[in-house]
Nucleic acid binder design. Structure first.
Length: 154
DNA sequence: GCCAACGTTGGC
DNA sequence: GCCAACGTTGGC
């Protein structure tokens, strides 16, 4: 089993939005970065666990965990001209973009903020990609030790 | 293949 | 709103 982190702007899709979905499950659409796509398409497996991270907001933070409930399949929003993630160059017969389904596992009682994570950047969280300078990946792997340490902060 | 221009991300 | 970082685009 592998561990991951998904970023989402809470104004777009928050962990509370996920909690309101039927079966607390939703597809993770809109990823339009090749490295992030490759992680989802090639490496994510059903049952893998991931952090739900709120970005571009007042308090950036890890706010909970999800499980991968369906492995990668084509992201239909890439073919929809009315969707904000529409990609005119993508082709349904040879999809470029993929998504997975995620199911809410735990909504933390207390968010683990980016500010808090940074305090451990040179120790327990050394090498954590979220803290790397200039990091912009919206989907990234998390090591098991980083996973366990962040869970210990909640 | 190079690289400048441009758009996006995301913290602050 | 600002700005640094980075990915993508497109001319050459």
């Amino acid at each position: 089993m592998s561990f991951w982190l998904f970023k989402s702007e809470p104004g777009e899709f928050s962990i509370d939005d996920l909690a309101r979905k039927r079966s607390k499950t939703e597809h993770w659409d809109g990823v339009r970065n090749y490295q992030a796509r490759n992680f989802m398409r090639d490496e994510m497996r059903k049952g893998d666990r991931a952090f739900f991270y709120h970005s571009s907001c007042a308090e950036p933070a890890v706010v909970g965990t999800v499980r991968i409930s369906r492995e990668a399949y084509p992201d239909h929003t890439a073919f929809d001209p009315d969707d904000s993630h529409f990609d005119p160059k993508s082709n349904p017969k040879q999809p470029t973009w993929f998504m997975v389904d995620v199911k809410l596992q735990e909504r933390f009682d207390r968010p683990v903020t980016l500010a808090e994570l940074k305090r451990y950047a040179d120790r327990e969280l050394a090498g954590f990609r979220l803290l790397a300078r200039g990091n912009r990946l919206s989907v990234m792997p998390v090591t098991e030790s980083h996973w366990n340490f962040i869970l210990s902060l909640r």
